[in-house]
Simulated assay, not measured.
Amino acid sequence: MSGPFGPGVSGTCPCGGGTEGLAYAVCCGPLHAGDRPAGTADELMRSRYTAFVVGDEAYLLRTWHPRTRPERVGLDPQTRWTGLTVLRTERGGPDDVDGVVEFVARWAEPSAGTVGRGELHEVSRFGRWGGRWLYVDGEHG
């Protein structure tokens, strides 16, 4: 992994999931390591956001439905993901087969000596296949 957390990640998980202030090692870390799958669409979306933060392209590809998955994600090492706000979820629970999570992810990127900032607003669709949640696709708003 690359990014601000890198190997041996320590500190608070950037996803803000569950109880605020959970350590990466008990929040998204086990999902990234393959120790356990996401239990809900929301948990998968949060772990995918964290994968962007830590630069874990392999996890992003592994949790993307094969029908819509690109060959590579192409993470930009200059982009720093700076915050996540989940706006709503529909379905996506442990007993559901599909779900929707709407979120805003904030980013910052240095450019010619200044720092550009922006937001990615997405309504993501998720599905369960073989007992695992996978990202299907998303619409940007």
Rank of each mutant, 00 (worst) to 15 (best):
A38S: 11
E109A: 04
E43C: 06
V26Y: 06
E57S: 12
R67E: 12
T12D: 11
V100T: 15
Y59W: 09
V86R: 02
E90G: 06
C13M: 04
P110I: 02
E43D: 10
T63P: 06
P110K: 01
A51T: 02
Y24A: 13
A51C: 04
C27S: 08
P30V: 14
C15I: 09
E90H: 09
P77A: 11
V100G: 00
R91Y: 00
D98F: 08
E102A: 12
R80L: 14
A108P: 02
P77T: 11
C27L: 03
T68S: 15
E102W: 00
E109T: 13
F103V: 07
G55C: 08
P66Y: 13
G3K: 11
P14K: 12
G74A: 12
C13V: 06
H32T: 08
F5E: 02
G83M: 08
E109M: 14
A51S: 09
R91P: 03
G55D: 04
D76A: 04
A51N: 04
R48N: 04
S2Q: 11
E20Q: 09
C27G: 06
R67V: 15
T89P: 01
R36P: 01
A33F: 07
C28M: 06
P70M: 07
T85Y: 00
E109Q: 15
A105W: 08
E102L: 00
C28T: 04
R46T: 01
R48M: 06
C28Y: 07
A51E: 02
L87M: 03
T63N: 05
V9A: 15
R106K: 12
H65R: 14
G99K: 13
D56L: 09
Y49C: 02
P14N: 14
S2L: 09
L44C: 07
D35P: 00
L60C: 07
L61M: 11
R88M: 12
C27K: 04
A108R: 13
Y49L: 03
V9P: 15
G6R: 13
T68A: 07
G83Y: 05
L87F: 00
P94V: 15
G83N: 06
V54I: 14
G18A: 08
T19I: 13
G83Q: 11
Q78T: 10
A58Q: 12
E102H: 05
G74M: 10
F5L: 13
G16T: 03
P7N: 11
D35F: 05
T40K: 08
G8C: 07
V100Y: 01
L31Y: 05
Y49S: 02
G99P: 02
R46L: 01
E90Y: 00
P30D: 06
G39W: 03
P94E: 15
A58F: 05
E43R: 03
R88K: 11
R80P: 06
E109Y: 13
V73I: 15
